[in-house]
Structure formats: C-alpha cells, structure tokens
C-alpha cells in the first residue's frame, strides 16, 4: 500500500478507530458531531480498498476508503470495540451513558442497548481471551463488565475518584484488566475481586490512555495530560521503567503493537500520532503529522504489519503504511 488513504467523516469529529479482528480491510470509527459538546454520534464501518488505493498511486486520495455502513445515535460516540467472537458485531459507548451493540449486517438500529452508566462512557474494550465479555469505563467513575446476551451489567467496580478514560483487557489473561483515570492513577484489576489488585500513581496529571504490551504480560503503557508516555512493570508499581517524551500536548491514546513488544504508538492533542521504539536509545522513531486537529484515535492492523489508521477532530480518517512500525521484530 502506497501513500495515505483518507476518508472524510463529514460533520463528525473522530474519537476512536478500531480494526476488525476478523476482516483485514475493515475498520470502525466512533465519532461525535460538534466536537462531542452537543448533538449526534455516528459509527462508521469503513472498508479499505487496497486495489483502489494502488490505482490512486502514491498520492493516495479518494476511493481507497469507503463507508460500508453508518449508524447514527442521539448522543456522541466516544469509543467502540469489535466483538472478538462475532465477526459482524461491534459495541459503542456514548456521551449519554449508553452502550449499544450493533450487527453490521443490519441497518439503522442496534441489537442491544444498555443504559446503566450515569455519565459519559469514554471507553469500551472487548476481552481478548474470554471472548464473550467486554468492559466499559465512564466519567461516573465506575467500570462495568458486560456480556452481549446479559440484560444488565455483571459487575460494577467503583474505586477511582475521578473520570475513567480508558479500560483495557490484558491480552494474556481473560480475568485481568487495567484502567486509566483522571485521579492520576492506573489500576490493575482481577474480575473476580471487588477491589483493584494494584494502583499505580502513574502521572502527576490525569491519565488519559493506557494499553498492555502484547508480548510481555507484566508491562503496561500510560499516556497523560502531562505530555508524557510511561512504561510500567505492573509488579513494580512504584516506578516507571521508561518515560517517552516528545508530544507537546496531552497524550490521548496509546497502543502497543500487535507485532512487536517494543513498539508503541500514541495519539495526542498536539495533532500528531507518534511511533516509539521503547528499546531504542532515541525512542521516538516516527511522527505522523497528517492531521490538522486533535488526534484521538489510532489503531494498528493485526494483518498488515506497518499499517496504521488514525482519526481526529479534523474529520479525517487516515490509513497509511508506517515503515517504522514494521522494522522491528520481536
């Protein structure tokens, strides 16, 4: 794939972007009108047409990404997560506290709707191991566990003392997840326990983002309003293992590469997405400056090493090949 593919999420500001775990050319973008302040949300199911992309040549441009399906919601959508057990299903989280499950073979309306959270739900994440469950994290300071067929949440955790911005399952354990909060901490949880397993005072500012290393089950990465990204060994929560500096404003999202234990990508209010090699002396290996507003979503293809998708408040989705993402083998 050459060049940069773009898609205009017209009228909607991107908040999250996620590759399908089943179809290599399918991505979803959760978005909100009016910057998420007021108004509708939209879930975009996008197809990446690599043939059209190749025909367009290195300049990239139109035709490479098509909207296969769009779903409109009353309130802004802040996150989405594809089902790990059903190739056609995806769950969204919304500013009105609702969680909706969609079947992308159907039009217009969700197949499930849950309304338990009392504030904005900024995070939803599907369990990578026990593939019948997902978790949500909300500004109501709670984390909830859900199963698609269950009419109510199965569990609620309340321990954070500020908005929860992200909740992410461990790729290695179906019982373990982590959460990032405005209370400046990240917490590690076991679904069988009511209290968190550990608390990391991760930053002296709000922690907006978090992910698990896919190749080292004890390592997490956090991103913060303090501009920094930190890597942690969760067994030693008192001190980070590395600080990654370079973003000029708050770090809104971090993700660990599905292909390498050393590669991390981050999206920031500084309008860039950056690629980091946490094992390198100079860790910042790429700056992706394809956006003209806050970059809120980033994801890496599991099927095409080096392919990365971003979404931003400039109403642009980009899909591009970043060599720095692929150069590193575990």
């Amino acid at each position: 794939m050459a060049g940069v593919l773009r898609f205009h999420t017209a009228g909607y500001n991107g908040y999250a972007i996620e590759y399908s775990p089943f179809f290599e050319n399918r991505i979803a973008c959760a978005s909100a009108a009016n910057f998420g302040i007021v108004g509708n949300g939209r879930l975009w199911c996008l197809g990446i047409n690599t043939a059209a992309a190749a025909a367009a040549g290195p300049a990239g441009g139109g035709g490479g990404i098509t909207a296969d399906r769009v779903y409109d919601t009353q309130d802004g959508l802040y996150d989405c997560a594809w089902s790990e057990e059903h190739e056609n299903q995806i769950v969204t989280s919304s500013g009105d506290g609702s969680i909706k499950l969609w079947d992308v073979t159907l039009s217009d309306f969700p197949i499930r709707n849950w309304s338990e959270h009392t504030r904005e739900v900024f995070s939803v994440n599907w369990n990578l191991v026990n593939k019948d469950a997902f978790i949500t994290g909300s500004w109501d300071q709670t984390i909830k566990l859900w199963k698609p067929e269950a009419p109510q949440s199965l569990m609620t955790w309340q321990e954070h003392t500020h908005c929860i911005y992200q909740t992410v399952w461990s790729p290695a354990s179906g019982e373990t997840f982590a959460s990032a909060s405005g209370d400046q901490t990240a917490k590690i949880w076991d679904v069988r326990q009511r209290a968190s397993a550990s608390t990391i005072h991760a930053h002296n500012a709000e922690v907006l983002a978090l992910d698990w290393n896919k190749y080292n089950p004890n390592v997490i990465v956090t991103g913060s309003v303090d501009h920094s990204i930190k890597t942690w060994d969760v067994r030693f929560p008192s001190r980070e293992t590395r600080v990654l500096l370079g973003h000029e404003y708050a770090v809104r999202r971090v993700k660990c590469s599905p292909h390498s234990g050393d590669v991390v990508v981050s999206a920031s209010y500084d309008m860039t997405m950056r690629v980091w090699d946490t094992a390198a002396a100079s860790p910042m290996v790429h700056v992706h400056d394809l956006h003209s507003e806050f970059v809120l979503g980033v994801d890496m293809s599991m099927f095409f090493e080096g392919q990365v998708a971003t979404c931003a408040w400039d109403e642009q989705v980009t899909v591009s090949h970043v060599p720095a993402l692929g150069h590193k083998k575990r």
């Binding site: 302040i37 900024f122 908005c163 907006l208 309003v225 708050a250 209010y269």
Partner: peptide, 27 residues
C-alpha cells in the same frame, strides 16, 4: 493549537458534576 494545560482544566472540572450536554472530555 490545543493546550494541554487547559485540557487538563476542563477534564478536572468535569468532576464538578455540571455537564449540561455530555460535553467532550477535556479535549
């Protein structure tokens, strides 16, 4: 350009339970 320091303020301020319309997080 965004201002992370002001983002932080907005996000912190959300703790005031005064969010008229599901406003965006701190961004």
């Amino acid at each position: 350009p965004p201002s992370s320091s002001s983002s932080a303020k907005t996000e912190s301020a959300t703790n005031g339970d005064f969010s008229p319309s599901g406003a965006a997080a701190g961004t």
